[in-house]
Simulated assay, not measured.
Amino acid sequence: MRGPITSLLFERLVRPPHRFGLLSLPLLSFPARFAGPVLEDEDVQLALFVCYELHHQGFEGVDDRWEWNPSLLEVREILEARFEEGLARAVRYPPGSRPEQTRQALAELVAAAAVDGPDLAGFLRERAGPEQFREFAAHRSIHHLKETDPRTWAIPRLSDRPKAAPAGIQAHAYGGGRAERTRSELFRATLRGLGMDDSYGAHLDRVPAITLAVSNAMSLFGLHRRHLGASLGHLAAVETTFSASCHLYSLGLRRLGGGEAVRRFYDERARAGATRERIAADDLCGGFAARYPSRAGDVLYGAACALTLDRLFAEHVMSHWRRGASSLREARATTRS
């Protein structure tokens, strides 16, 4: 628990599904409760993450019927509204552009992001020690162990060329039908190689709000049809930037003596980069913008959100490391005993 909202939520979810009643709603809607930056609000981001996780693997001891409980959805809607307001304050909606300009506009967003913010990947490549790599892996485990599941929700909402593109990307993420080749299993090998707990959600209580916000944005865009364009743009931005970073992560692990198994997740992402970038930018985003010209801006907004949240995450991590502090909420050991 990280505040009054998660305290209320956790206390209710261990009971059988029921109406929350009106007592919970003033707590969530009272303006002073959201006076600070929502993207950095520990209570809000964890509460929203918990709501979304009910659509993923859920929680032991929590009744699956909570997933679509109207009372809980009402609470989630309030949290989502605050989260969307926070994103809108942090990310300006891109100016209008013609559908055929979507790829170029996406490339310009990525190029601008490359020179904005701290070089976390470069630090991990050149200077990070083993404990800092473990911290980084703990942060990333929050979405790498579920990988691109939130984006899969977009596939049934598409048709023709835009539908085929994410289906192909997701097939690769899920190992082409081979369980040992799925991204989540490859990342588990990275965690084990770093001496860390590789179970799903093991590091949830230690990651800060901005790490949860990165994951929450994926679920927000994936769950809502109205955010379909943003979900596709988010995917394209990640695919366009992540492969180069993965190469640096792998080199950093090699510098520290990491073997092939611990590096394989990053090596495979780096190798597949160029092809996946083209599919995401051309077939996925370009095809969607051509079919729905009025929603081209949504694609760019989703991409901008992904890039901005990644910058804020890097700023959080690097600001702590520069002063010799842990970037996690607790400095507990990250290795197995």
Rank of each mutant, 00 (worst) to 15 (best):
R2M: 04
R2I: 02
L9I: 05
P16D: 14
L22P: 07
L28G: 01
A35H: 12
L46T: 11
L46R: 10
L48E: 01
V50I: 15
L54C: 05
Q57C: 08
F59D: 02
R65E: 14
W68Y: 12
S71P: 00
E74P: 00
E77S: 15
E77M: 10
I78C: 00
L79P: 02
L79Y: 03
F83C: 02
E84W: 09
G86R: 01
A90V: 12
Q101I: 05
Q101W: 06
T102G: 00
Q104F: 11
L106D: 04
A114P: 02
D116I: 07
L124E: 03
L124Q: 04
R125Q: 13
G129P: 05
E131N: 11
Q132L: 09
Q132R: 15
E135Y: 05
F136D: 01
H139I: 04
R140Y: 03
T148W: 01
T148Y: 04
D149V: 09
T152L: 15
T152H: 14
P162H: 14
K163P: 04
A165Q: 08
A165L: 09
A171N: 14
R178A: 15
R178F: 15
A179R: 14
T182G: 11
S184M: 10
E185T: 10
G195D: 11
I210W: 00
L212M: 14
M218C: 11
R226L: 11
L228F: 07
G233P: 05
V238N: 01
S245C: 05
S245A: 12
S250N: 05
L253E: 01
L253I: 07
E260Q: 14
F265A: 01
D267I: 14
T275R: 12
R276F: 10
A281K: 03
L284G: 01
R295S: 09
L300I: 10
G302I: 02
G302F: 08
C305D: 03
L307E: 05
L309A: 04
H320F: 06
